[in-house]
Design a protein around this nucleic acid. Structure first.
Lengths: 232, 232
DNA sequence: TTATGATTCAAACGAACGTATGAATCACGA
DNA sequence: TCGTGATTCATACGTTCGTTTGAATCATAA
């Protein structure tokens, strides 16, 4: 068997697809763009992956399998070290979101390209993508939710789940890096290159997520409460 | 002039486009779907709006013009009432995000359909949409950032802007309502219909946003800090 | 009633889409 | 060295895309 060319072609297609899906979305990327960028024949995608949908799934599976296994490994490790004690919320948040965000520096695992693709795809309308992602994430999701329930026994489970949802939103938007409304404009932040911004993004986001997770519970039916703000 | 049919057709197209762009995305929606749903001739879109891109812009302009004017009005009102005193962060957050979220109940202004479309579009890859949104939002964005700077004089402006960005992400994901990873599964939350969930979403999200905005500042270079969690 | 400009309509345009086909080319075991 | 299965290739299929066209139809002012 000629495995060498095979693998080479597959990987080149996956890399190009990852990059282009990130830049133009699933519907906005054509097979001809992908095969052109990958410098392979047009028919190669259908030969190796079967269809455009299957290609998209493989683009995610290649990265998510490792990510979610790593998340499981980290959580197991932390729970074993803690014994019967509940974990700290910050540990859980770091296990889930920190593990994800640290992929940004790991070019072997897609780096920022994959992170941005993932962030954008989480709000993608296509049904088959949502179904696929939900299946990929189901196990790890349950484990982390359970850990949060145990870590925050006094908080209603409904609140925890919602806040998990909000954390996911803040993170996915942050890693998508689109900034459609141009909230963050470089020249008013600081003179810093992209590398630096990635470096500082993680602690910034983690602080925000933890602050949101630990916020006072909402008072339903009344307007937003206001304790005075203390920072730093 | 036959203004009646004109306006009728325009509105029906805009309504159908809003609904379909929300459900299938910009690239995933065809002119034939839109005109079919609106029960108008295929050529009507190009006659009334010029192109698919212009239609998309008009779908947003119809809602965003009012939203951003309302945001401006609310902010002006609060600032006049406060005189020289800075506003409370919760007031600013409510002015920006609360005004947005309250559109959910306003069917005259698109309701949840438009909110979900907006949420999904904020991570949309298409360049022309991002450029358009950035222009639409530029003014109101500057005003609210300035208000936050004044309200939180001790927090570095860079941090405020980043947290604004994170708040935007959490909100856009929440209103997109996609929940790709199925974090929030109805049967484990509470027996409640959709109306109730919209009702409770707002205070829940506002608590989360304020908690994130007021979180302790990040310690760069060190792992996530951990004050013990106090809720309720 | 007739003239006029706005709107609607059926039909077609060329381009791009995802996919399929069958021959050519390759690597490699016998 | 030859045969075989895996892979690559050029090409074409049928469909759908956004847009355009020119005639038909409408509402209104003169």
């Amino acid at each position: 068997m000629a495995e060498v060319r095979n693998i080479d072609t597959r990987e080149r297609i996956l890399d190009a697809a990852e990059r282009l899906f990130m830049a133009h979305g699933y519907e906005g990327t054509s097979m001809r763009q992908i095969t052109g960028d990958a410098a392979v024949n047009l028919a190669a995608v259908n030969y190796h992956f079967g269809s455009k949908e299957s290609l998209m799934q493989e683009v995610f599976r290649r990265r998510l399998d490792w990510l979610n296994e790593e998340r499981m490994r980290v959580l197991n490790e932390m729970e074993q070290a803690a014994g019967d004690n509940p974990l700290k919320p910050s540990q859980i948040v770091d296990g889930f979101f920190g593990t994800l965000l640290r992929m940004a520096d790991d070019k072997e695992r897609g780096g920022v390209t994959f992170l941005r693709l993932l962030g954008r795809t989480l709000t993608e309308p296509s049904e088959f993508i949502r179904t696929f992602l939900a299946d990929e994430y189901a196990g790890v999701m349950e484990r982390y939710k359970a850990a949060l329930f145990k870590a925050l026994p006094d908080v209603p489970k409904a609140e925890i789940v919602w806040r998990f949802h909000f954390m996911l939103g803040a993170t996915s938007y942050a890693i998508a890096g689109t900034d459609a409304l141009r909230v963050v404009t470089d020249w008013q932040i600081e003179a810093s290159d992209t590398v630096d911004r990635t470096d500082r993004l993680v602690p910034r986001l983690m602080s925000f997520l933890l602050g949101g997770l630990r916020a006072p519970l909402p008072q339903f039916g009344s307007p937003a409460e206001d304790a005075d703000v203390k920072v730093a």
